[in-house]
Amino acid sequence: MNILVWVAVIIVLITSVGLLIARDWRIGIIFLAAQYLAMFILLLPHLPLGMASVKVVTGWMSSAILGMTRSDLREDDTEENLWPRGRLFSLFAAGMVVLIVAGATPAVNNIMADAGMAVTAGGLLLVGSGLLHLGITSQILRVTQGLLTVIAGFEIIYSSVESSALVVALLVTINLGLALVGSYLMLASQHREPETP
């Protein structure tokens, strides 16, 4: 189990960096879905299988909602809106996040009732990369992915101290709600005023 959990941390690292540098929205959605699989593994030490499964299924549903909505939109309108655009910059920023997470993990692990180094590191990586994502983009799909990533990281860390069914249910609702709101805003952002002759 211990090795599996560390594998999940590596998957989280790959997917969160991948989300930052991917230009194609399809690849972004795939990374998001893979991120939820890693989240499932990281949740298992603290949550029953059923509850962890609910979270991963919800994550995949959220990814599907975003992907389906995005697939219906025009390509030209959703050009990359990252600043700065360079992949190198994103990689550098992600490297900074990894360094900060590496430094903060022992202390946070201590505070969070010894959740486990891997669980804490995975959660913090997601929170950090999600915040970075939110900081460098204003594109609605990416903002939604960033928020879902932050919440996924938080859920991993929080699961070590709180496993109430009500909290799981509400967080699941919030995840789905965020995906729906993201889709709604994506659809609205496609709207154009009719051209006057």
């Binding site: 919030i174 709604y184 805003l185 609205a188 952002s189």
Partner: peptide
């Protein structure tokens, strides 16, 4: 907060 988003922005205006 999530429920309030459709109240603030319609599908026919760019957010």
């Amino acid at each position: 907060i999530l429920i309030s988003i459709p109240m603030l922005s319609s599908l026919y205006t760019t957010p």
